[in-house]
Design a protein around this nucleic acid. Sequence first.
DNA 1: GTCTATAACCGGATAGAC
DNA 2: GTCTATCCGGTTATAGAC
Lengths: 233, 233
Amino acid sequence: MLGMMSAVAASLGSKGERTRERILDVALDLFRQHGYEATTMRMIATAAGVALGNSYYYFPSKDHLVQAFYERMHAELVEACRGILDGHVALRARLRLVMRTRLDVLRPYHGVSGTLFRTAADPRSPVNPFSDASGPTRRASIDFLRDVLAGSNARLPRDVASTLPHLLWLYELGLVLFWVHDRSPQQRRSYELVDDTTDAIVRLLALAHLPGLRRIRQRMLHWVSTLVAEGAQ
Amino acid sequence: MLGMMSAVAASLGSKGERTRERILDVALDLFRQHGYEATTMRMIATAAGVALGNSYYYFPSKDHLVQAFYERMHAELVEACRGILDGHVALRARLRLVMRTRLDVLRPYHGVSGTLFRTAADPRSPVNPFSDASGPTRRASIDFLRDVLAGSNARLPRDVASTLPHLLWLYELGLVLFWVHDRSPQQRRSYELVDDTTDAIVRLLALAHLPGLRRIRQRMLHWVSTLVAEGAQ
DNA sequence: GTCTATAACCGGATAGAC
DNA sequence: GTCTATCCGGTTATAGAC
């Protein structure tokens, strides 16, 4: 009996973890169906089969459900990229694939994502991508981008190479912000934007070697580090 | 008597307009003192001497107070720049002055501005800078930046000149976003960022003439127009 | 110590009378 | 244009069950 229990616990997690997953699952479903505002905590609790107050035991606020959503989206991106990048060594191709996959993974949430990203600009919200609470996801995202870079055959100046993952993370934020506002069918425009901007990034990186731009390049890289690292505080 | 009434109406607006101004004034005061969330509509109504329901006659939602805040901040920027730019014809100097003044004007609201800008990423909020409701302020801001450019002695390719105001407006948004997160004393870092980035912008504009970058330049300008003009929808 | 349930609080928003 | 009364939903306090 005990053995069985452990096996279940190992595969599905403890009872509490399963309840947490169930709440998050129904919450994201309801968000997609009715939107963020229209989905009440009471609806979520009912659909998950728990009492209202109980859902606050697992998620201290409605915002924390959004935080969990981000984490899930990151995990899905990494999973979806597994295998896709193999055999591609050109930086442009790798970037394009990752960013297109980013949009693919987010697609089911396009309708609600506007509201889900609503708190992104609030420095005091835990959901803000620069916050401490977002730190683990942010670092995971940046590390992932570093791997994407490392797998390419691009040869970059040392200072560029070390900061580029942070810059790309900012680029990814901007891309998602564009996508959120994109009303073209299937968000086709956002995919075109990916193609054009990844191309531009690679071409501009080639300019990074120009000696006349050395000082300005270093200053801009400094600001990127400042924003990503210390904007976090 | 009637003449007096008209005179008062002309200087202070109708009774309704004065009530609206009073509500907005106390709201912004309370926001600065207690923050956005901590300031309740009940507090605002009481301080303005109107009933709770009545304040909703003037501002359909708490968000609409934020909208009015944006409009006021734009008006204050234009007012504060009056005279300051005279005699400066170098684009770098003009940009730097405008952006520094932008931060000066916002400074009293640094504490709350995070929350005030919270809805910036929500495409369906009227407060979102790309929304229809923000259209007038957005256009006014872009027109203002166009004037700032026009007063400089910079000679730019035609396509760059026509889109640069939109690009600068995006730059201004980004700058404010940085400033919101800036915890350095007096937000000194943000002012340094202004200096470094206005410098970078002017230097990069000089590169716009390079023939090898023509195609990429046109594509990027196209995206800026798309985002600012049609992101609005 | 982990989890669940009930009841209440508070504030944004609305309805409808005057 | 202004008020009163009310709704609705996020959040919290708290008491207890496993």
